[in-house]
């Protein structure tokens, strides 16, 4: 009944969103952004036993300009924050961020002058993967959750709106707000 019967064989109908999302989610290229212990588990995820290539992700890009997904694996120190933000800004849209491990998500067992209490204060995070470090299965689960998230996105209205690109001169990490702590250790009110 209707229009479908008139369509010859070999033609399928879909929405543009569904097709674009299908293409996007099957070729997510992660930026190999290993910082600390979690980076080793991220490497295990790529390596023999867990083999992330099954999900179309075997290429870890070393350049942010060729990557769509940033896996922040490890603790983010205050010195690393501007670097992290700059790498994120260099990634082309659409882009996603997975915060891998307790340290990247909330500071983990470290809560002191050197460690950022969560990478979500620097870049928008899509998926948090808990664990110290998370098992490769957990990371894969996080990636599959990201796929589900990508499926719901629309070409017209991306879920994450990116602010206008910042100029290279200012240090982007500071724009997003580095907390100022006084040396006596008290929190600034």
């Amino acid at each position: 009944m209707g229009l479908e019967e008139k369509i010859p064989d070999g033609i399928a109908l879909t929405t543009l969103d569904a097709m674009v999302n299908w293409a996007r989610k099957r070729s997510v290229w992660p930026l190999g952004f290993g910082l600390a212990c979690c980076a080793i588990e991220m490497m295990s995820t790529i390596a023999s036993r867990f083999d992330m290539a099954r999900f179309g992700m075997e290429v870890m890009r070393s350049s942010p300009r060729q990557a769509d997904l940033m896996i922040v694996a490890g603790r983010v120190s205050n010195k690393m924050v501007p670097v992290l933000r700059r790498l994120y800004d260099q990634m082309p849209n659409p882009k996603w961020v997975i915060s891998m491990g307790a340290c990247a998500s909330c500071g983990g067992i470290f809560n002191n002058y050197a460690i950022k209490q969560g990478v979500d204060r620097v870049v928008p995070v899509d998926i948090y993967v808990p664990g110290c470090p998370p098992r490769p299965e957990q990371l894969i689960d996080g990636i599959l959750m990201l796929y589900k998230k990508i499926e719901k996105e629309s070409v017209k209205r991306p879920l994450i709106t990116q602010p206008n690109a910042q100029t290279q001169d200012e240090r982007p990490g500071e724009v997003s707000g580095q907390p100022h702590r006084n040396p006596s250790g008290e929190l600034n009110k």
Binding site: C106, G107, N111, N112, Y113, Q117, P179, R181, P183, S184, G185, E186, L187
Partner: peptide, 10 residues
């Protein structure tokens, strides 16, 4: 010792 840990309250 006079430099605090700069603990941030969760």
């Amino acid at each position: 010792k006079d430099f605090g840990l700069v603990y941030e309250e969760p």
